[in-house]
Amino acid sequence: MSSRTPEFLTREHDPADPSPWLALYLDRSTPLPDAVKEAWLADSSCGSRQYLLPFLRPLARAFIILIQVVKTFLPRKWSHSKLLHRILAWGLEHFVSPEANWLILRHFHLGAQVLSFIARNAPVQVSTTPLEPMCIADLKDELFVKHDLNLFNFVIRLNGALREAGVEMHAPEKVDFSMIRDPGLRLEDMPQRKRNFLDLQSAIELFTPLYQLMLTDNDFWRAANSLQLDETVGIYAAQILGAPQHLILVNNKHPLVPLSTLRAGYRLVLHGLSTEMLHSLLMRAKRDAETADFPASQTA
């Protein structure tokens, strides 16, 4: 983990002035592992989120409106995806906090594992295209756009195969958890210069107008609407596990009701947290399955 211990873990508990971050960290109602929860709350409680985000968010949303007007005068296919990803990687490397960078890289791995879990346990064969960047520089290969494309292509391929076979998603006789694992990324390997101070939400709010500017309208709308599929992926996982209660922590609004791109930054943070929650639930289910199988293997 990082050498920086969050203030809420070093401060002595005062019943007259309790830390809300400590309460959230100690709370066990959500399945996040302590390392992830510590990084998430350290990022959420930092100074840039408290003092910069309230100013950045309205400015970023104003730019989204302005850029939408400007793009009405640009060619519909106007796009600079490769340059966009180089700028994003540079910004993450030099200005974004270690915790935020760690969570962003984790997101690609966790998303790939969740889709692989669904594909492996579905009643039909469907291929996946995992994206597993090991460092920030790997993101330059247009990974943010490819991540959105992967999700839509997976849903299309999966449901096309289900329709063709005339079957529905259901729990298999034995669930395969072999692809669910810790990504092996280390927080201490993230850039930790003094200027790496920007929290996750502020970085996303800043990058969203840039994302809109340098992609086609179609690519940007698809990226924003991909956030609507959190419940869809959660439903697939719940159907495989036969456990609909797992949906309670996977929530980013109804997939059939596209929302305005003005809130894309905030919803992207929800998307990241939903993926962490679902992966944590699958890790817990994997441990439970291994524990249940252990006595049988001992007596075999």
Rank of each mutant, 00 (worst) to 15 (best):
M1E: 09
M1H: 08
S2E: 09
S2C: 02
S2P: 00
R4T: 13
R11P: 00
P15Y: 06
S19A: 04
L22P: 03
L22C: 03
A23R: 10
R28H: 14
P31C: 12
A35N: 12
V36M: 12
V36R: 08
E38R: 15
E38I: 08
D43F: 12
G47T: 10
Q50N: 04
L53R: 12
F63G: 02
I64M: 14
I65N: 05
Q68N: 14
K71T: 05
T72C: 07
L74A: 12
P75S: 03
K77A: 09
H80L: 10
R86I: 01
R86D: 07
I87H: 01
I87V: 14
I87N: 01
W90L: 09
L92E: 00
E93S: 12
F95M: 10
F95I: 02
S97R: 08
E99V: 04
A100C: 06
I104N: 02
L105P: 00
V114Y: 00
S116K: 10
A119N: 04
P123L: 04
V124H: 04
V124C: 09
S127P: 01
L131M: 07
L131P: 00
L131H: 00
M134D: 04
M134C: 03
I136F: 02
A137R: 05
K140S: 04
V145A: 08
H147N: 14
L149I: 15
N150D: 11
F152Q: 11
N153H: 13
F154G: 01
F154E: 01
I156T: 13
L158R: 01
N159Y: 14
L162V: 11
R163I: 10
A165Y: 10
G166V: 13
H170D: 06
P172W: 07
D176L: 11
D176C: 09
R181Y: 06
R181K: 15
G184C: 13
G184K: 12
E188P: 11
D189C: 11
D189E: 15
M190V: 06
Q192L: 05
R193S: 12
R195E: 14
N196K: 08
D199N: 12
L200K: 03
Q201P: 00
A203S: 15
A203W: 14
E205A: 15
F207P: 00
F207N: 02
F207M: 15
L210D: 03
L210M: 15
Y211D: 06
Y211I: 03
Q212L: 15
Q212I: 14
L213N: 01
M214C: 13
L215E: 04
R222V: 14
A223R: 09
I240E: 01
L241K: 06
L241N: 06
P244L: 13
Q245L: 08
Q245K: 14
V250A: 03
N251T: 07
L256V: 08
V257N: 06
L259G: 10
R267P: 02
V269N: 02
L270V: 05
L270M: 06
H271M: 00
H279E: 02
H279L: 09
S280V: 11
L282T: 04
L282E: 04
M283V: 05
R284Q: 15
R284D: 11
R287F: 10
D288Y: 07
A296T: 08
A296N: 04
A300H: 11
